[in-house]
């Protein structure tokens, strides 16, 4: 009895540990998404010389929560000819996948849920599943707009995944490991933006296309497709899609931070004039600045045409990133041989 009790306690502690860890990721993530929407509206407003949301709370700080509450108490509507099972499962899948990816992202030194040796492949695999929520939602809602939007979105995500994969391969060639800690640790001397600057630009643009942000927000194209794959969703289904999309944005910017901007290393390592701040601060700062860049791009550029988008993905980014892959491999090999 004593022994069984001990075993039960051990299991309980282990499960409680996992539960706490996942809450410690999920709750700040949802808060970050809430404030990201506010940030987006404020920045867009100031770029349009408007005020933006300023009624709910100080400077509209509580606007996101008011919107969330409104959406949660809305009625969930099922279209008459929808395939109910898949219609319900699609937003849940999107949201779940966008949360599961965060298990392998490190935020600081030894700050990660699971330190995978194949972290990069894990993230690549899981984010390639994000297509399914979109394509199933478009098909199951049995509406032409939603279906066209989902087909566009899926084709776009698959095309840009190819170039993203090859760019990541270039980074991995420089690191020699698929572990995120190794990737960040190998940027201690110099961040990868400096030697791989064109790849960083391509990765950022592919990230815009991958997260369906403007100027590549063709799936949403409100002028022609109402709002794309989530046209038929109301209430909680829409909230789940929205949260999934925005947490994918946060994920993409933190991945850019890890691959190219030295993760949690501060830019003032050598000068050490500033008081020493924790690495998570720098990680958050870099991620937030990339999110700002996402929003800046949205406020600046007009939407691409669809054939231009496909041309950019397949005829420009793919050959260029393949060329860089061969160049980086040859360069590293040359250094290994002759220096």
């Amino acid at each position: 009895m004593e022994k069984l009790n001990l075993k039960m306690t051990t299991y309980f502690i282990a499960y409680f540990n996992i539960l706490l860890k996942s809450f410690a990721i999920i709750l700040p993530l949802l808060l970050a998404v809430a404030f990201l929407t506010l940030l987006e509206r404020k920045i867009m407003a100031s770029m349009h010389q408007r005020k933006g949301p300023n009624v709910v709370g100080f400077f509209g700080l509580l606007q996101a929560f008011a919107d969330g509450l409104k959406l949660f108490i809305k009625e969930t509507i099922f279209p008459n000819s929808a395939n109910i099972l898949i219609f319900v499962l699609a937003p849940i899948t999107t949201f779940l996948i966008s949360l599961v990816v965060w298990a392998a992202i490190p935020f600081g030194d030894n700050l990660v849920i699971s330190d995978l040796n194949l972290g990069v492949v894990y993230i690549f695999a899981i984010s390639s599943l994000g297509v399914y929520g979109i394509i199933f939602s478009g098909w199951s809602s049995n509406s032409k707009w939603a279906f066209l939007g989902s087909l566009r979105s899926t084709a776009q995500m698959i095309s840009y995944e190819v170039s993203i994969g090859i760019i990541v391969l270039c980074v991995l060639l420089c690191v020699g490991s698929l572990n995120f800690f190794d990737i960040v640790e190998s940027q201690r001397k110099i961040w990868f933006v400096v030697p791989l600057f064109p790849l960083f630009i391509m990765f950022f643009v592919s990230g815009l296309a991958e997260t369906n942000r403007s100027p590549f927000d063709l799936p949403e194209a409100e002028a022609e497709l109402v709002s794309g794959y989530n046209t038929e969703y109301s209430g909680i289904g829409f909230v789940l899609f929205f949260l999934g999309e925005y947490s994918n944005m946060v994920l993409m910017s933190s991945i850019i931070t890890i691959y190219f901007f030295g993760g949690w290393f501060s830019p003032f390592n050598y000068i050490s004039v500033l008081p020493i701040l924790p690495g998570t601060f720098w990680f958050g700062l870099k991620t937030a600045s990339f999110l700002f860049l996402f929003i800046w791009v949205r406020a600046t550029y007009p939407r691409y045409r669809y054939d231009q988008l496909m041309r950019l993905g397949w005829k420009v980014f793919l050959p260029f990133s393949l060329g860089w892959l061969i160049f980086v491999a040859g360069f590293l090999l040359g250094f290994d041989l002759y220096i």
Binding site: L118, V121, Y122, F124, A125, I126, S128, L129, V131, E161
Partner: peptide, 9 residues
């Protein structure tokens, strides 16, 4: 993971 990327993705 490769299986998931190739077949499922």
């Amino acid at each position: 993971l490769l299986f998931i990327v190739v077949y499922v993705g």
